[in-house]
Design a protein around this nucleic acid. Sequence first.
DNA 1: ACCCGCCGGTAGACACTGTCTACGCCTTCT
DNA 2: AGAAGGCGTAGACAGTGTCTACCGGCGGGT
Lengths: 191, 191
Amino acid sequence: MPDPDTTLRARLVEVGVDLLTREGPGSLTLREIARRAGVSHGAPRRHFPSHLSLLSAIAQVGYHDLGGRIAGLREHADPRAGLLDLGRAYLDFARTQRGMFELMFRHELLRGNQIGLRDASRQLFGVLVDLVTRARHGLTGPDPVVVAGALWANLHGIAQLWLWGSLQMTVQTDDVDPLLRAALDAHLGPA
Amino acid sequence: MPDPDTTLRARLVEVGVDLLTREGPGSLTLREIARRAGVSHGAPRRHFPSHLSLLSAIAQVGYHDLGGRIAGLREHADPRAGLLDLGRAYLDFARTQRGMFELMFRHELLRGNQIGLRDASRQLFGVLVDLVTRARHGLTGPDPVVVAGALWANLHGIAQLWLWGSLQMTVQTDDVDPLLRAALDAHLGPA
DNA sequence: ACCCGCCGGTAGACACTGTCTACGCCTTCT
DNA sequence: AGAAGGCGTAGACAGTGTCTACCGGCGGGT
């Protein structure tokens, strides 16, 4: 199944992503990944100094994926519609790539900023700032960067709440679109 | 050090909380907790069917703590000021009780709703809904429950972003108060 | 052409972890 | 008094991440 031509480093990440989406973050063991890649349990160490760094590499694939879905929205003609699409993409990612999403925002990973997670987030945030700036062009109000930060916080919070079912429990719905629209209206002003 | 009069069940939780705040979530091992409680590693099993359930009990202490800080705000004369205080309390909790906060919102814990975590969140959410309802009394707009949900999402997102340093990275500040005020203005309408 | 070093894999050990089972004590109830 | 069961102990087991020793093969320098 795994392509024997690719280097082991790449194959480990690939196997990890596959394992993650297939069986969840709980099975992302160093040894299990090595097993599925067909190598001994010591082999990964030649490419990743620790288990955590391998997990980080896997998470980075997720950031890249999410970034790819969002990057195209930067030039959206209608910035507000672009933001709505961005939010939907973000929430859709959390919904469909749940395991990856959980991995990406694990505290252990983010704490030790070992890799380009920050770069990835920054790029993602850049798109957000651009769209917000354009959406609020000519309007008074707080700094677009603050608005973008608040919006991201809102967006991420919705994803979290949805993920562990708090929405179903409180707002009594799994439809996040109203929450998303409410957030946009709130932070950008009424349409 | 531990009170020998308390039951083991209570002492395990107590030791766990202490260990959590002192050394972080990483050292919350079943065996380590038992060790510090002065019992063998098999003893906890008599009171908690699994490691996760012990962690849940520890997290519940955190929910209770946070709930206690927030419950008093329900009757706040000025609901908007009450919401601001609530937000500050929430963020302050995340900041000062970081390990506990991380534990409380771990995906593994929330996924398997084994305990009253939902009850705790629900109670917390209730205060939020009350305050929002009063703050928006007589105004038109979305359902207060939706607003409360959005506000909570926003609040929690700010806490998350702050926790892993994304705020410092993007908004270029660690002062969350502006973000908090922006969120309130956004969701409740201008003061 | 040879040898040497190193890159990248293997195999095993080590200290951990969570879970399970068998055992014994000690209390409590009949 | 005797049986029963709650509660803690001790040990085993599979699994984990990390570390170390080993080793085959490949490339470059003398």
